[in-house]
Design a protein around this nucleic acid. Structure first.
Lengths: 139, 139
DNA sequence: CAGAATCCCTAATGATACTG
DNA sequence: CAGTATCATTAGGGATTCTG
């Protein structure tokens, strides 16, 4: 959607990143996957190599059995994680990143880098906001 | 970044992306902001230039007045968006990306690019999964 | 071990009405 | 126009119990 300003000499509406080209297309799918509470943490752990169910649960601190199950299932469904069942007894299952999943770690790293680079800015902005808007509660 | 899987000589878990270095640190803050339902769409719209409240609401299809308010407030609090009130009557307010917010659009674009690049893979993986796991409901 | 099945609670979002 | 205030709904997530 072109939002060309009607301004006389106003410089064309800048879109430095070319984001207008794909407003929603597909981003939601990815955000729905990595935007939840645990997926990124699981992916990061799996970036270190294959893990069994209990290993993952111990590594990802605070995750419940239920949420770990749901998280790995969804990652598996999206083809980001490969689940392998070994017919031993008791059962043994391991999870590992697929090619797509491994590629996703690059994106996660970009996110982590950006977060670290701007962490101080954001923290400061929040403090400033909370100081100047004491009554306001938007969390 | 090489993903060479030696297998034999690498007892140590490989971390091709260096993700282990910052497991959680700061990523959550960013994901909590861009992981919600509307923030990315608002940011993308603002990447096209300053917008007034109603303009934003019309541009971001489906967003309620309440959620738009909450979304821009949170973005403002994090220093990603600048809110300017003009003391006219009726009131006039515009929103624009700050420096940090504009920088964030780079990350959003990386996300969009990745999403587009892997959209087919993911869609196919899902279909395959749903076909082989008919009863399973994990959404 | 690796889950499946329940129950319960809270946060997130939506709908509607009202205001400076 | 640009919100605020309420109420209703739903999705996400946690705790617990049970099983192959």
């Amino acid at each position: 959607m072109s939002l060309t300003h009607t301004g006389v000499t106003t410089p064309a509406p800048l879109d430095p990143c070319g984001l207008e080209e794909h407003p929603d297309c597909g981003i939601r799918d990815v955000l729905d996957r990595i935007g939840d509470k645990w997926s990124v943490l699981v992916i990061v752990e799996l970036a270190g190599g294959p893990r069994r169910f209990r290993e993952l649960q111990r590594a990802v601190e605070g995750i419940s059995q239920r949420m770990l199950t749901l998280t790995v299932r969804r990652l598996e469904r999206d083809g980001l994680v490969l689940r392998t069942v070994y017919p031993t007894v008791p059962a043994q299952v391991d999870y590992r990143l697929t090619g797509t999943g491994a590629d996703l770690t690059h994106l996660v790293k970009a996110l982590a880098d950006w977060s670290l680079a701007h962490r101080a800015d954001i923290a400061e902005a929040r403090q400033s906001y909370d100081r100047t808007h004491p009554d306001h509660d938007i969390h």
